[in-house]
Amino acid sequence: MDSIANFVVTHKPQLDFAWHLFIYLPLILRPSFFKYFTSSKPAKYAQLPHIPLVVHMILGLAIVGRYQVRALVSSPSAPKPESLDIALGVMNAVISWRLCKYESKGNPRIVRTGFQVMALMVLFPAYMCYMTASPVWYHSMVKMHNAFIYVRWLIMGGSMAGIWSGFHELYTISVFFGGILGVWEGRYPWDGVLGVPLALVLHVALVVVERYNSSLITPETYKSPSSNPFLGLMLLLGLVDVQTYKDLKCPAVPASPTDEKEELVAETKE
Score class of each variant (00 low, 15 high):
29 L>C: 07
69 V>H: 02
59 L>Q: 01
67 Y>L: 00
23 I>L: 11
79 P>W: 02
54 V>S: 13
118 M>E: 11
38 T>S: 12
89 G>T: 01
112 R>F: 00
52 P>V: 09
27 L>K: 07
73 V>P: 00
126 A>W: 15
24 Y>V: 13
134 S>F: 15
40 S>E: 11
28 I>T: 06
121 M>P: 12
105 K>N: 12
47 Q>A: 10
39 S>G: 10
39 S>L: 10
67 Y>W: 15
81 P>L: 05
105 K>S: 14
111 V>D: 06
125 P>M: 09
17 F>R: 10
29 L>T: 07
73 V>K: 03
34 F>R: 10
36 Y>M: 12
38 T>I: 07
62 A>K: 03
41 K>M: 07
72 L>R: 00
66 R>I: 00
82 E>Y: 01
10 T>P: 03
77 S>T: 08
78 A>L: 12
104 S>A: 08
93 A>V: 05
85 D>C: 00
68 Q>A: 03
49 P>N: 12
60 G>P: 06
131 M>V: 14
57 M>G: 06
11 H>Y: 15
52 P>F: 03
67 Y>F: 15
57 M>A: 12
54 V>Q: 12
12 K>I: 03
91 M>Q: 08
38 T>K: 11
83 S>P: 02
19 W>Y: 15
92 N>E: 12
119 A>N: 08
69 V>I: 13
91 M>A: 15
32 S>Q: 11
20 H>W: 12
93 A>W: 01
11 H>M: 14
98 R>G: 05
45 Y>L: 09
83 S>T: 13
80 K>E: 07
48 L>F: 14
133 A>Q: 10
126 A>F: 15
18 A>S: 13
51 I>S: 04
82 E>P: 01
130 Y>D: 08
135 P>Q: 05
34 F>Y: 04
87 A>G: 07
64 V>Y: 00
21 L>G: 15
31 P>C: 09
33 F>D: 06
84 L>P: 00
110 I>T: 08
63 I>N: 08
94 V>G: 10
12 K>V: 03
122 V>Q: 11
106 G>A: 08
19 W>V: 14
98 R>M: 08
72 L>N: 02
127 Y>C: 14
31 P>F: 06
66 R>P: 01
91 M>T: 15
123 L>M: 11
34 F>P: 01
96 S>A: 10
75 S>V: 02
131 M>G: 05
85 D>M: 05
92 N>I: 04
64 V>R: 01
46 A>R: 11
45 Y>K: 07
87 A>Y: 09
106 G>P: 07
131 M>P: 04
105 K>A: 14
62 A>H: 01
21 L>W: 11
31 P>I: 08
30 R>L: 03
29 L>I: 10
34 F>I: 10
52 P>W: 04
99 L>P: 01
